[in-house]
Design a protein around this nucleic acid. Structure first.
Length: 436
RNA sequence: GGCGCGGUGGCAGAGUGGCUAUGCAGCGGAUUGCAAAUCCGUGUACACCGGUUCGACUCCGGUCCGUGCCUCCA
């Protein structure tokens, strides 16, 4: 059996993956906050960890992949205040759209997709445990994690507490004992989402939810925790601190044994940002390109490398898939070179090159591992075709002209249709039209 | 300022101390009435300067350039 190697962000080295329980691999990846359409950066995370789950499932008998939906957050409240739409309507709508769009990208729904709002009691319990162990304190309706109480803090991002404060541009709230302390629970106004707690009506801080959901559904410790590279600090750092301290551990691996982070997507060389207005939404791209084209594009660079998104790459992915779909043969096996490439820390560019080199009969099974080439080839290849009804007479005339070897007339008809925006492609089944 | 990542052929993008991926595009050819598709052939590229070595694109040091995080962020 192939051996999976992964780059562990916690130790910053590539290591052989060895599950805590050979019979049950458990992983968690931070999912989206549902206040808007998912952008291609969200999509990259979903695709990368979907792929990782696929690979794990070929190697191990049982895998549980948990990825959450964050449905309580200040950004959601902001969206509510801006649009007037009820909170629940916003979160339900964008959860549904997220799942639809990710399904279009070939991502299976995570085995468990918990919602933050379904995990509030567990979050409160975590806060209480942290207070009991003197790693957290209540102040002004808030509950704060006391960073100096955890000497190992900063192990993931390689940032000492002092460095962090030195670089901090955040205002330091008066109720904090230490400038680095972060919020576990905060008070809500009456018109904001909230729950009754020992500290009054309030809602969770951002980091505590993932600690609670991961523990609830996977148990501690579990094997792999993933997410976007930008979550390393402070989000994942804080998750580790909370989860380890709540149970009295000082070892950073008492939460998750391995950490994996995917790189950013940039657009034409620039980071996506609202101010630049270059946020690319998966939802919009899916209107023009098949989900597999987007998925291949997302997998065309190694997951830890930055990925620069461009129209050019999409066209290239489309061409590659078109060519592969022409070759898809019977139902063979997963090509071992493809699997081996993926087992080497998800080396997808290499895996794709091996897929192209694979026997035709094995392309479909191998593509399945990557989440590609799962459609009906005939339908895929007919994608660009348009109905010919309105030009049937012309096409028939051209067919007759061709039979009579009247090339001049045949070309004339080709030009006439070109003038109307269509390209004639002769196939064994007759002429087909494509939009120019 | 602190911490990190990267600079590979026209573009994209892996990888390795000596055997120099792959894809897209291009070019040449086969095939084709034309067009498309397909097939064959075709490119010694690894930022710069030192060092280590029999030998470095690959290891070490420095320089330049780009970029990410440090604040909500996939």
């Amino acid at each position: 059996m192939a051996q999976l190697k992964v780059f562990n962000s916690l130790t910053r080295e590539k290591v052989e993956f060895s599950p805590l329980d050979e019979n049950h691999v458990r992983l968690y990846a931070c999912g989206p906050t549902v206040y808007n359409y998912a952008h291609i950066g969200n999509a990259r995370m979903a695709v990368v960890f979907d792929l990782l789950t696929n690979v794990l499932k070929t190697l191990y008998p049982k895998v549980t992949y948990v990825s959450n939906i964050t449905d309580v957050d200040d950004k959601i409240i902001a969206a509510h205040k801006e649009t007037g739409a009820p909170i629940a309507e916003i979160t339900e709508k964008f959860t549904r759209i997220y799942n639809e769009d990710m399904a279009s990208l070939g991502c299976a729904t995570p085995d468990i997709q918990p919602r933050a709002t379904d995990t509030i009691p567990e979050m409160i319990a975590l806060c209480e445990a942290l207070i009991a162990r003197e790693h957290a304190y209540a102040a002004d309706g808030h509950v704060l994690f006391n960073v100096p109480s955890f000497p190992s803090y900063g192990g993931l991002s390689g940032r000492s507490r002092d460095e962090q404060i030195a670089g901090a541009r955040v205002e330091i709230a008066s109720y904090k004992k230490d400038p680095a302390d972060f919020v576990l629970w905060k008070p809500s106004a009456q018109d904001e989402p909230g729950w009754d707690s020992p500290w009054g009506y309030g809602r969770p801080g951002w980091h505590i939810e993932c600690s609670a959901m991961a523990e609830k559904h996977l148990g501690l410790p579990f094997d792999i925790h993933g997410g976007g590279a930008d979550l390393k600090f402070p989000h994942h750092e804080n998750e580790i601190a909370q989860s380890c301290c709540a149970h009295g551990h000082s070892d950073l691996t008492a939460f998750s044994k391995y950490w994996m982070h995917n790189g950013f997507v940039t657009v034409e060389g620039e980071k996506m940002s609202k101010s630049l207005g270059n946020f690319l939404l998966a939802h919009d791209l899916l209107e023009k390109y098949d989900g597999e084209v987007l998925r291949l594009t997302l997998l065309s660079a190694h997951y830890r490398q930055p990925l620069d998104w461009s129209e050019d790459k999409l066209e290239q992915s489309q061409t590659i898939l078109d060519r592969l779909y022409k070759r898809v043969g019977g139902s063979g096996n997963v090509d071992s070179a493809v699997l081996n490439a993926l087992c080497d820390d998800l080396n997808t560019p290499l895996a794709i090159s091996k897929l192209i080199a694979a026997d035709d009969a094995n392309i479909k099974a191998s593509g399945a591992l990557l989440g590609l080439l799962q459609q009906n080839p005939a339908i895929w290849l007919a994608q660009g075709n348009v109905e010919t009804n309105e030009f049937d007479a012309l096409l028939t005339e051209r067919a007759e002209a061709k039979t009579a070897k009247n090339w001049a007339r045949a070309d004339e008809i080709r030009n006439e249709l070109a003038a109307q925006g269509f390209k004639i492609i002769d196939t064994p089944d007759g002429a087909k039209l494509e939009k120019l």
